[in-house]
Simulated scan of single mutants.
Amino acid sequence: REAWVRPGGTTFYFINDGPERALELARESAGSRDIRIAGGADVIQQYLTMGVIEELEIALSPVLLGGGRRLFENLREPGPRFRIDKVLDGPAATHLRYVRL
């Protein structure tokens, strides 16, 4: 898939080589800057299992869509090593910011 350039200059690149390769390329591109990983539960679980996530932001919206995935389920660690750092509650969503212990 071609790169997706957003207004303001942010560019999203898509690869099929797995999360380790994606992180390697992101680190090369970012240099000393932070890296953001976006995706659903499957994507986030891969990086949680790799132990490379330092901060995690989740937006919870009160919408019932049927099924879903538990974000902290099926991880290699016995339990997530995060604490809630900040909660921002709004009418459309609750935003949770977790930081690694």
Rank of each mutant, 00 (worst) to 15 (best):
R1P: 11
E2M: 07
E2G: 04
A3K: 15
A3P: 08
W4P: 04
W4D: 15
V5L: 10
V5C: 09
P7N: 09
P7K: 11
P7L: 13
G8N: 02
F12W: 12
Y13V: 06
F14C: 09
F14P: 01
F14W: 06
G18D: 12
G18M: 08
G18S: 10
P19V: 15
A22F: 01
A22P: 00
L23F: 10
L23A: 07
E24F: 14
E24C: 02
E24P: 00
R27A: 07
R27F: 05
S29V: 00
A30R: 08
R33Q: 14
D34A: 07
R36L: 10
I37D: 02
A38C: 15
G39R: 07
G39E: 04
G40F: 01
V43L: 14
I44N: 02
I44S: 03
Q45K: 11
Q46M: 06
Q46V: 05
Q46K: 12
Y47W: 03
L48F: 02
T49S: 14
T49A: 15
T49M: 10
M50D: 05
V52P: 06
E54R: 15
E55L: 08
E55M: 05
E55W: 06
L56Y: 00
L56A: 01
L56T: 01
L56V: 05
E57R: 09
E57S: 04
A59G: 13
L60V: 13
L60P: 01
P62Y: 06
P62M: 11
V63Y: 11
L64W: 09
L65M: 11
G66N: 08
G67K: 12
G67M: 12
G68L: 03
R69G: 05
L71F: 06
F72W: 05
R76Q: 09
E77H: 12
E77M: 12
E77T: 10
P78L: 07
G79A: 08
P80F: 08
P80R: 05
P80T: 03
F82V: 07
I84G: 03
D85G: 07
K86S: 08
K86W: 01
V87I: 15
L88A: 07
P91K: 11
P91A: 10
A93E: 10
A93M: 04
L96E: 00
Y98D: 01
V99N: 01
L101D: 13
